[in-house]
């Protein structure tokens, strides 16, 4: 780049050296990242490998590799569950609930966030403060009054108490997340849409939503994961085993007063991770798809 016209640069050597340092740098970076990764997911690897050992060996053995005692019995036995229902029921229930929660949150929270982030209206500051406030109350204390409310409505032993609140944007976390994202979007886009005569709904659906895909994707992923992993709420509202979700099913494996099955617990925990991972992988591209702010016409 800085070569003058008269002196020819030994480009071959310089670029080879540059390439070598670049290669070394890449290697170092990759190995650091992988190293950190291994440390981080070691427990998961442990869990995965332990799920192939017989239950009683899991307790006593400290080795990582199952070796000779490799068995898939934890998967076949564990799938039957502990009691009347098998994990096919539990997985189905978890899917339905998590799916509905995702839909609810994405729709309701983005709508509320649009209002908070881009619209003006009286009472905005107070309502925003209240929204943030609802994040802060510990969940356990709302548990009993909420239970009374839902049982008066007759919603106990249905999925409704788990799902309907999502459609009413009660997860302030995601409203907050999207407000922060939407605020970063340039106002000009929306203003020009308004000038062109778009109503708020069209602006929201046709301009804001495509621009906010990373935030919506994030909402979808986290909602799915949290709803999937939620234990206490399903425990108290879903009373019949045919409505149990996967976390409840997993807890059935360990009983301090009776028999426990670590093998089943690990095996089913591994299986439980797969939908989560799958959902995450499927949506991570939306997370990635950023906007190029130039050229947006």
């Amino acid at each position: 780049m800085t070569a003058s016209a008269t002196i020819p640069t030994p480009r071959g050597v310089a670029s080879r050296r540059r390439r070598r340092t670049a290669l070394v740098r890449t290697l170092v970076r990759h190995s650091l990242i992988i190293g950190g990764l291994v440390m981080l997911i070691y427990p998961l690897i442990w869990m995965f490998l332990s799920s192939f050992r017989p239950s009683k060996e899991i307790i006593s053995s400290t080795q990582l590799w199952p070796g000779d005692s490799f068995t898939t019995e934890n998967y076949t036995n564990g799938w039957q569950g502990v009691g009347a229902e098998s994990f096919s029921t539990f997985f189905l229930n978890s899917f339905v609930i998590a799916g509905l929660c995702v839909v609810g949150n994405v729709i309701a929270c983005s709508a509320a966030a649009y209002a908070f982030a881009k619209l003006e209206f009286p009472g905005k500051r107070i309502l925003f403060a209240i929204m943030i406030g609802t994040l802060m109350l510990p969940y356990h204390v709302q548990l009993i009054p909420q239970y009374i409310l839902f049982s008066e409505l007759g919603w106990v032993n249905t999925f409704l108490p788990l799902v309907v609140p999502k459609f009413l944007a009660t997860d302030a976390f995601f409203v907050f997340l999207m407000v922060q994202f939407i605020r970063g979007l340039p106002n000009e886009l929306m203003e020009s849409a308004r000038l062109d005569g778009c109503g708020h709904l069209r602006t929201f659906l046709q301009i804001l939503v495509p621009l906010s895909l990373p935030a919506l994707g994030t909402t979808a992923v986290f909602t799915f994961i949290w709803s999937w992993n939620d234990f206490l709420t399903p425990l108290i509202y879903l009373t019949e085993p045919d409505k149990y979700t996967v976390p409840i099913g997993l807890r059935l494996f360990l009983d301090s007063t009776g028999e426990s099955s670590y093998g089943g617990l690990f095996a089913m925990s591994v299986l439980s991770l797969i939908p989560l991972l799958g959902f995450f992988l499927a949506f991570q591209r939306t997370l990635v798809r950023g906007i190029a702010t130039t050229g947006l016409k």
Binding site: A112, Y114, F121, M131, V175, H200
Partner: peptide
């Protein structure tokens, strides 16, 4: 419009 969007919340 804002109240409309905020309705569910």
């Amino acid at each position: 419009a804002a109240y409309g969007f905020l309705g569910p919340w």
